[in-house]
Computed example of a mutant assay.
Amino acid sequence: MTSAGGGLDGGRFKGSAFLAQSAALHQALGGAPQHSSAVRWLELAERNAAGVDLVHQDRADEAVEAFHDVVADCAGVLGPQHPDTLVAAGNMAVAHACAGRLAAALGMLEVNLAARVAVFGDGHPRTLDARDALGTVLRLSGRTADAVAVHSRVAHQRALALGPSHPDTLVSRLGLALDGAEAGDLGPASAALDQLLHDAEAIFGPRDYLTTVVRAAAADIALALGRVDHAVTQLQLAYSATESVRGPAHPDTVALQAELADAVAIQSASRPGP
C-alpha cells in the first residue's frame, strides 16, 4: 500500500485505495472484436493483463512503459475510440498515477473520461470508473475541493445505477472519506470510514480486498487522531487478512507490516514506563 504523493503525511491516506477505486479500469480487454484477428486480439489482452499485474506488484514505472505500447497497438488494431482501447488507456493513466506522475495521469484521465462519455454515456459504469479515478488523482494532487465535487457526483450516480450495496458504490464512499481526511476533517472522515468498514464486512466479509483497504485507511486516520490502540488492532486485522490472501511477499502485505510495526512503536512509546 504505497504512497504516490500529496496530502497528509506525504499522501499516506492513498494506501491501496487508489487501486480499489480504479479496479474497474484494471480489467482485461473485453470480447474479441470480429473485425480483427483473434490471435492479435488475444496478444493485446495478455499484454494488458501483464501491465495490470505490474501495477499490482508495485512496479508502476514498468507498467507505464508496457501500457504505452498496448494503448498504441490497441488504437492501431481496434481504433482510438474502441471500448478496449479506452480500457487500456485508463490503465495507462492509473499506472502513471501509481508511479507518482500525477500531472500526466490527470491529463490522461480527463481525456479518457471525455472519450468514455462520448462512447458509453455519462452514467455508464465504465464512465463512472474513469470519473472516480479522476477524483482520486485530484485528491492526490492537492485539489481536495475538486475531488469532493467529483466523488460526490460519482457516489450519487453509482447509488442510483448500481444500488447502495454494490462494491463500486462503497468505493465512492471511501473516496469521499479520504477526501475529507486530506482536507483535515479527520473526525468526520473517521466516523464515515468506521461505518463503511461495518458495511463492507457485513456485505463482503472481513478478508475481502475492499474491506481490508477500508480497514487500513480507518487505522491511518485513527492513528492521526491519537486512537493508537484502535489503530493497532485494525492494522493487525488488515495485515493478517492481506498475508493470508495475498501472501507474505506481496507489496501490500509488506507495507502493512511496516505500518503495523510503526503503530506498535508509537503505542509502546505512549505507555508509561515501569
Rank of each mutant, 00 (worst) to 15 (best):
D168S: 12
A4N: 13
G273Q: 15
T211L: 07
L113S: 06
P125Y: 07
A189F: 00
C74G: 02
R271V: 15
A265T: 12
G247N: 12
A105C: 03
T136Y: 02
L174A: 05
L223I: 05
H198F: 02
S190P: 02
D53E: 13
V254Q: 15
R40V: 14
L54M: 09
Q21E: 15
S22C: 13
D168A: 13
L196K: 07
P80N: 10
D179A: 08
V171L: 05
E46T: 11
L86P: 00
A97F: 02
A88K: 00
A32L: 03
Y209D: 14
T2Q: 06
V137P: 10
L54Y: 01
A28D: 10
L196C: 09
P274F: 12
R271F: 11
G107Q: 02
T242G: 12
A258G: 06
V52R: 15
V71E: 01
S270I: 08
D229T: 10
A32H: 05
D9Q: 13
A45C: 10
F13N: 11
V55Y: 07
E110H: 01
L113P: 03
G175W: 01
D229V: 07
Q195A: 10
H82S: 02
A93E: 01
A28W: 00
L134W: 06
T144R: 01
G31N: 09
D179F: 00
G273W: 15
D208W: 10
L109D: 14
L174E: 04
T242E: 15
S240D: 11
A130L: 08
N91A: 13
V228W: 08
Q21H: 10
Q27K: 11
Q267I: 12
S172F: 00
D262M: 05
A241V: 08
E201D: 08
R207I: 06
L42M: 09
A249N: 05
L186H: 08
D185F: 01
L29S: 06
P274W: 11
I203D: 05
C98K: 11
R12A: 12
S16N: 11
A147K: 03
L138E: 15
G6H: 07
L29H: 02
A104N: 02
H166V: 04
A89N: 00
V254K: 10
A219W: 08
E46L: 08
T85K: 06
S16R: 14
A115E: 13
A28M: 03
N112F: 00
R126G: 06
L197Y: 05
Q267L: 15
H68E: 09
A75S: 09
A133F: 04
G135A: 12
V55L: 14
A20W: 01
A115T: 08
A114D: 03
H151L: 14
G247Y: 08
G6Q: 09
F67E: 06
V39A: 15
G273S: 15
L78C: 12
D194Q: 11
V119K: 06
G163H: 06
G5T: 07
P83W: 01
H250G: 13
P83E: 08
G123Y: 03
G247S: 10
G184C: 01
R153N: 13
L170F: 03
E46I: 03
T2A: 08
V137M: 13
V87Q: 05
R158S: 04
V52I: 14
H124F: 02
G123W: 02
A103E: 11
L256M: 10
H124N: 04
A105D: 09
D252I: 10
H230Q: 15
R126Y: 13
G51F: 04
R59S: 13
